[in-house]
């Protein structure tokens, strides 16, 4: 199911303000890629361009190409709705639908395509998705209870279950652990390790230990100052970025000398 992502010379704008400039990188299938960098450097903005969620904000737009297995997401005639069905996203704060039960939350995305799914098939998908998100054992007895009654870490895994239920090709995670305690964070990190065997995963994180623990490759973003666009400084194997980076700014950042 996983696909290669190629980004070519991408500029991202909010109105006339250029937030991210000239990003070119290639993400291999079945890998975890981490985006790190100081606040405001555009890494969250950039990850949202990979499933066309960026343009949800009024005035936001993109120049350049994002290819998933050779198909340009920003090509003419490409429906952003269909793009988002292939590229799932997990957000910074857990956001299960409060008006839906745990079961309905998992099925929310599937119901968009296939409203008449037989009950047995739906049950199997709920179980498979919750298993895939390591949540099944904790919630199997209360599938009809509201998703908002779970703990933060459970809610985030519910969101991951909801995302993988639609069988996306890529999963984007925008600081998925920043609102969670260390134990829940560990659970999500273990889960990322497992999901990697099936999906291409891109994760934004502020936690450098997390980037070094979970990712195969790391991209370091930086800005020169307020009002300047963010840029991709260095993109390499995670071990290289953390032990022997080729750019001074990267070394300073990962060793904690600035930021």
């Amino acid at each position: 199911m996983s696909k290669r992502i190629e980004v070519r010379d991408l500029d991202v704008y909010y109105g006339t303000f250029r937030a991210v400039e000239g990003v070119t990188l290639t993400i291999e299938p079945r890998t975890v890629t981490a985006f790190i960098g100081p606040s405001g450097c555009g890494k969250s903005t950039f990850i949202r361009t990979l499933n066309r969620m960026h343009e949800v904000i009024p005035g936001a737009r993109v120049d350049g190409e994002v290819l998933i297995d050779g198909n340009n997401l920003y090509g003419p005639g490409v429906d952003p709705v269909l793009v988002r069905r292939q590229v799932g996203m997990v957000f910074q704060r857990p956001n299960p639908f409060p008006t839906m039960s745990i079961r309905e939350n998992v099925l929310a995305g599937v119901r968009l395509n296939n409203t008449r799914m037989p009950k047995q098939e739906a049950d199997e998908l709920v179980e498979k998705s919750l298993m895939g998100a390591n949540l099944w054992n904790e919630v199997k007895d209360r599938l009809d209870k509201p998703g908002s009654g779970l703990s933060g870490g459970q809610q985030q895994r519910l969101c991951i279950a909801r995302t993988i239920a639609v069988s996306p090709e890529v999963i984007l995670m925008d600081e998925p652990c920043s609102a969670l305690d260390p134990i829940s964070t560990l659970a999500i990190e273990d889960l990322i390790e497992e999901l990697k065997t099936e999906y291409t995963i891109v994760i934004v994180t502020h936690n450098m230990q997390q980037a070094s623990r979970v990712s195969d490759k790391t991209a370091f973003f930086n800005i020169e100052g307020t009002g300047k666009p963010g840029k991709l400084i260095e993109y390499d194997d995670t071990t290289t970025i953390f032990s022997n980076p080729s750019v001074k700014a990267t070394e300073d950042y990962v060793s904690g000398k600035f930021g």
């Binding site: 949800v56 793009v83 988002r84 799932g88 996203m89 956001n95 639908f97 409060p98 969101c159």
Partner: peptide, 26 residues
Amino acid sequence: PKLHEEAALALGATRWEMIRMAVLPF
């Protein structure tokens, strides 16, 4: 909440589907 609207959109909901999933129930 923007969070819920974005959750629906990120699942591949159209605007009307987003309204039915997030806005009206809420």
